[in-house]
Design a binder for these strands. Structure first.
Length: 481
RNA sequence: GCUGCUAUAGUGUAGCCCGGCCAAUCAUUCCGGCCUUUCACGCCGGAGACUGGGGUUCAAAUCCCCAUAGCAGCACCA
């Protein structure tokens, strides 16, 4: 009888994917610009879930084709974050390793007449595009284009002077589709991993990679709908079959900062302590609070791939986490904003509260009552008749004074006395409980020091992860009630 | 503005493709009660939704039209 109740299992099945019965190849393709946040987790988890369901391969593709948006540290942090999530990644691909592949495909596309090298000023091109008109470079011969293309690769052009464009329907109602760019020159900053100046744009490298890597199904946000249209041109020029796409709706996440640039600025200015500051929406921030990756996964699976815009609910995530953590978290007393009380008329007593109420086999803590206790200040505002949990009843007699009021639990219940947490004056550790709303200063049981990195439940306060224990001081991060 | 997509309770979601079994599922949330030496967990009960308007039909959450709202894209970012 180790577990008195099992975790509820109400993970619904995701909708089936067409032509997936024989297995799928899917990918998660982040830009390495910073750590992953909850928004990334949705894409990463959903794709992972389908690969597990149908069998196949899950590819992590690092999309680092824009040197301006690559943070070298993110190569590591992204991997760490995914490892924490516990996804089944079978293969890792860096797009910066594949520039030659894109160059060959680019040349191929020019040879097929599907692309041209455009030297028009970007403002001029924009005007033509909006007027549905071809730019002067468009009708150039394949030979001329090839010559320009090689010039591009050999460094005859500078940044902004030239780009490779894919020929599309100039009458497409969406101007963003019309002759969209496939390559451009980025002279600075230098790319942290490769020495190159010609880089493919996302739509080109993604289409080429999806095909070459054998990707069969793509699940991504609906901000990519227009990109799917663009990529379709590339697939058609090459005669490749297109993967199956699903575009889920926008997910708004309240209460935390998600923008990488905002986070970075805040960290630099000292507003945030780091990428795991609990006011941020990064995975490392919620990990620090003791929220389990399984809870994140379940919450994301619950949300699914609907096309409707939704608001992410912290409540739902917390409920998932509580399911996981309630069974494992040991219980301890944390007294915030402590008030010292001398209890008159009470003999010394040893108390043995259970580490876990529904699992007595796990053992007890030991607290020695010796006349003086600390209790939370908020408990002193109501009734003067209280019960110290697992000890006895007291009646408040003065500012720092109480008197023993019997041992009867039944009487405490009958009088609806609050049953509160307490700590012996001489048996406690200073403890800071960091919450998103601010820090709570107090004291906790000495045994909490042995729970480093574990999630515990501070009775009547909520679940928290013990983050540090040094110099006899405890630092904990609040997860949820 | 243009192009497109979507619209089920506070939140997420099932049902919609193939109209009747929907007086609409499940979870969460909130409110009662029970249990309990935590305001946790567990158990019981309750509250709470088909965006609006037309149409088709014997019958519409499901099909059609209009309105409204939200969102996405309209970058030499991903």
């Amino acid at each position: 009888m180790e577990e008195l109740h099992t975790t509820r299992e109400h993970t619904r099945d995701l909708p089936p994917l067409p032509s997936a019965e024989r297995g799928v190849v899917m990918r998660f393709a982040p830009n390495p610009s910073g750590p992953l946040h909850i928004g990334h987790a949705r894409a990463a988890v959903l794709n992972d879930a389908y690969v597990r369901r149908y069998g196949g391969r899950y590819i992590l593709r690092i999309e680092d084709t824009d040197p301006k948006r690559v943070d070298p540290e993110a190569y590591t942090t992204v991997r760490e974050d995914l490892e924490w999530l516990g996804l089944d990644i079978h293969e890792v691909v860096f797009q910066s390793d594949r520039l030659d592949i894109y160059y060959r495909a680019g040349e191929d596309l020019i040879n097929r007449g599907g692309a041209y090298v455009c030297t028009c000023e970007s403002e001029r091109f924009r005007e033509l595009k909006l007027a549905r008109k071809a730019c002067p470079c468009r009708p150039l011969s394949i030979e001329d284009n090839l010559e320009r293309w090689h010039g591009m690769l050999e460094g005859s052009y500078v940044e902004g002077e030239v780009s490779v464009r894919v020929k599309t329907d100039l009458d497409d109602p969406d101007p963003a589709i019309r002759d969209f760019p496939a390559f451009r020159i980025v002279a600075s900053p230098p790319h942290p991993r490769v020495d190159a100046a010609v880089f493919p744009l996302m739509n080109f490298s993604v289409a080429v990679d999806d095909h070459l890597l054998g990707v069969t199904h793509v699940i991504r946000g609906k901000d990519h709908i227009a990109n799917t249209e663009r990529q379709k041109y590339i697939f058609e020029y090459f005669g490749w079959p297109m993967p199956v796409y699903r575009h889920y709706g926008r997910m708004s996440i309240e209460g935390v900062v998600l923008s990488t640039s905002q986070m970075r600025a805040g960290i630099r200015e000292g507003t945030y302590t780091g990428w795991d500051d609990i006011r941020l929406g990064t995975l490392r921030a919620i990990a620090r609070r003791g929220i389990k990756p399984e809870a994140v996964k379940k919450a994301m699976l619950d949300i699914g791939i609907g096309e409707t815009d939704i608001s992410f609910s912290w409540d739902n995530l917390y409920a998932r986490n509580r399911d996981l953590v309630d069974r494992i978290a040991n219980r301890y007393f944390f007294v915030s904003d402590p008030v010292r009380l001398v209890v008159k008329g009470a003999a010394s007593k040893v108390s043995h509260p259970l580490l876990h109420p529904s699992n007595p086999g796990r053992g007890t803590r030991t607290l020695h009552f010796e006349q003086t206790v600390d209790v939370p200040r908020v408990e002193l505002t109501g009734t003067s008749f209280l019960r110290l949990k697992d000890l006895f009843n007291i009646r408040i007699a003065g500012p720092n004074e109480a008197e023993h009021a019997g041992d009867s639990l039944n009487e405490a219940r009958a009088q609806r006395a609050p049953i509160i947490q307490w700590l012996p004056a001489g048996e406690q550790l200073p403890c800071i409980l960091h919450t998103q709303e601010g820090d709570l200063l107090g004291v906790c049981e000495p045994a909490v020091a042995g729970e480093l990195e574990n999630v515990v439940q501070f009775e009547r306060v909520g679940f928290a992860r013990i983050d540090r224990s040094s110099d006899g001081r405890i630092e904990a991060y609040f997860a949820h009630r």
